[in-house]
Design a protein around this nucleic acid. Sequence first.
DNA 1: CTTGGGGGTACGT
DNA 2: ACGTACCCCCAAG
Length: 281
Amino acid sequence: MGNPKQKWTAEEEEALRAGVAKHGTGKWKNIQKDPEFNHFLYSRSNIDLKDKWRNMSVSATGQGPREKSRSSKAKANPDAPATPLLNVQTSVATTPVANDASADVIMEDSKCLLDGKTASKYNVMIYDALSTLKDPNGSDTTAIVSFIEQRNEVPQNFRRLLSSRLRRLVAQDKLEKVQNCYKIKKDVSHGPKTVTATPKPKDIRPRQSQSTASYLGDTVEEAAVAAAYKVAEAENKSFVAAEAVKEAERVSKMAEDADSYLQLAKEIFEKCSRGEVVLMC
DNA sequence: CTTGGGGGTACGT
DNA sequence: ACGTACCCCCAAG
């Protein structure tokens, strides 16, 4: 209880970032032991590294966190955090409305599987609240809390729990935050410049493909549009599925299909980036 | 033993 | 009062 609370310095952050680039995410012990980084990280445990990376990922993913005081080193794009690996896929399978835990299964497929208990339960409540309130400007925390309180039994500190969870959902691209209001993100921007999907479940270095898509051919455009259309279609269907929450498994399958299309589009995109000719049937 | 996720608390605005 | 950053605890691999 009596912890001075040691703020992370820019050097430490840089060392951590470099360490992740070298060893990959998850190898916190290796990074901490590495003589090069140990110089900066000797006072941090591997757990600290993990926690810090989590925070950095959240800040990086949530585009436009209201933070300005958090060190001036705010790089334009500190790479895709490895935890939410699939968040790059133009918010593919973002389910627009309430549909229980399956929403998590869809989004967290790769390796960040939740316990499926507490967290998903809260997620369900949140989705339920947002989809019911249907506020075009989004609902603020208070509104969400009151809504959930009316329909569920919540602990005393629920507001804080909810706050954390909302932040996490925003970071995972599931929710959108405007001002202090949250709303379900269903805006499928099929802009070709965000097509940076990471195929491997565990990659060593986060790739940083810039928006090289500016000079893309029509083929890729079409592929992207087709994929986006498929995604939109899947979304629409998940809306219907939401009315019968029990049938969430179907939604999951459709999301997989949409993901396949995204993968296809990505392959084509990469081929085009290398100058190869891609024929479309 | 290491990692990942949940949760608590101090801090800043 | 609210949101954020740091830290601790516990479960799973």
